[in-house]
Amino acid sequence: MMWSLASYKLAMMIAVLDQTTYDASKRGCPIPSDYVPPNLIGDALKPWEYVFNEPLPTFGGLCQRALGTFKQIQDPSNPLTAHIPKVSLLTQLI
C-alpha cells in the first residue's frame, strides 16, 4: 500500500509539472532542461548533496527520474494514474 500511495503522490506531482511546463512552453518561455533554481546554487546546494549523496539534478533530470520511477512503481489497478506515462513532459522543455 505504501507503493500505491507513493505512485499516487508522484503522479500528482508529474501532473502539476506537466501543466506548468506546457503553459510555459506555449507562453514562449519554455523551461530549460538544465535549469537549476538560483536559490539552490552555492552554499544552498550542500544540504542536497549531504542528504542525497549525489549532485543536485537539473530540472530535466528530475523530471526524467520522476517519470522513470513512476513507471517502475505504477499501481496498475488505479485508473486515475493510467494516463501519466503518456504525458509529454520532457518534450515541453528546451
Binding site: 507513493a6 506531482m13 509539472l17 543536485l56 539534478p57
Partner: peptide
C-alpha cells in the same frame, strides 16, 4: 509564478519531488 513553482519542485524541506523520490528509493 513559473519561477516559484519550478523552484518548489526542488524543495528539500516540504515534500518536493527530490524528497519524495528519495523516500521511494
Amino acid at each position: 509564478p513559473f519561477k516559484d513553482i519550478v523552484e518548489s519542485t526542488f524543495s528539500l524541506s516540504s515534500g518536493g519531488i527530490g524528497c519524495l523520490l528519495h523516500e521511494i528509493q
